[in-house]
Write a protein that binds this DNA or RNA. Structure first.
Lengths: 213, 213
DNA sequence: TATGGATCCATA
DNA sequence: TATGGATCCATA
């Protein structure tokens, strides 16, 4: 996979310019989002472009999550205190990592969005809550660009469709990344939809990390 | 239908206290959201509570829209300039009315939310854009409360699930209204799902109003 | 093609 | 039961 579009808020730009720990987080995410390949024995990600909406989405994220968890020690499903403890309502953040250098801690929240475009609004709003309540220092959303989304499940999140709403995050450190396949080819296998695409790999959850302390 | 829960931001409270035109808008919306009945020959809204998620949602909104359009002259599908003209991307607001008293104009945007809960986040974000760009003076979202949503299509918007995110609208005039059925009864007819529930009534669109000028 | 929506799934 | 998601529909 490759990165094709990006939007970085002013606050995130300042962080990237001045904070080595945040730079590292950004590099880890960029390396991870570029890691998915298709088909599984290829070096690049090639999407079947036989017809509109012909591919499922679930397996796309797999290698990105694996690299974040296995190579870089990010955790999945991190609850926010504001939702879990204070409001007692609402689910966790998709991916999360605390970067520490001595006493210095930077906390980064990430959502890999391949759900319905409306779901990306919830992700954005949740990450905004995390920033507002000072539980996150940087938020990121990963999503396909429109060209790629055309061949995925109908109405999945795509960079261009969320773009008009990026400014809702104004004043906060936020990075939006749009990724694309390296190639389009009607002869590669289709990415399965529905149950067929569900992976069995167990994920590295924040909950388990905390409970094992 | 009846109103069961409400959240009104401080800015909206000030408007309601001081602005007769905004008061009128609020009264019109309250009357309209209370107008849906079920079954169609009843005086009240009774929901079939045979089992979880047994009813569809489409017909629920019908009478509310009708009253807003026919009795109170609201319009459907009002585009925002910021989306349509400036960003050239993104759809219209569900319901809209301009209240004028001489030179005084107040513009109210409304979303009747029975889509997936994630869709309510998009509605909220869109209304926020309208307020931020000074194209709206008040925004409102209507949605079922959790008790009612339990018997509607799985994962429809419900007041309680959006509630943790209400504060995203902080500093803006916003009203959230949660409605409930007057009665629950396993013997009333089920609200149909899917195509069966689609009404053929043509709606009063903002576009048509503007083009007929 | 673009966009809001409606519906049901998977998992904890 | 609660929650994020995946999928397909309807309409312009």
């Amino acid at each position: 996979m490759k990165i094709d579009k990006q939007f970085i808020t002013e606050e995130a730009k300042k962080l990237l310019a001045n904070d080595k720990v945040i730079q590292q987080a950004y590099e880890e995410v960029k390396a991870s989002i570029c890691s998915p390949i298709w088909p599984t024995d290829s070096d690049i990600f090639t999407i079947n472009n036989t017809e509109k909406n012909c591919n499922g989405v679930v397996p796309i994220k797999e290698l990105c999550y694996t690299m974040l968890e296995e190579d870089y020690n990010w955790f999945r499903e991190k609850p926010l205190d504001v939702l879990k403890l204070e409001k007692k309502k609402g689910g966790p953040i998709d991916v999360y990592k605390e970067f520490t250098e001595g006493n210095y801690v930077r906390r980064v929240g990430l959502e890999f969005e391949t759900g319905n475009i409306s779901s990306a609004h919830r992700s954005m709003n949740k990450l905004l809550l995390g920033l507002k309540y000072n539980e996150l220092d940087l938020s990121m959303i990963l999503m396909p660009i429109k060209d790629l989304a055309y061949y995925l499940t109908d109405r999945v999140t795509n960079f261009e469709e969320l773009e008009p709403y990026f400014e809702i995050t104004e004043g906060q450190p936020f990075i939006f990344i749009g990724f694309n396949a390296e190639a389009y080819d009607p002869n590669v296998s289709l990415i399965p939809k529905g149950k067929d695409g569900m992976s069995k790999r167990s994920i590295k959850k924040w909950k388990d990390k905390v409970e094992n302390k």
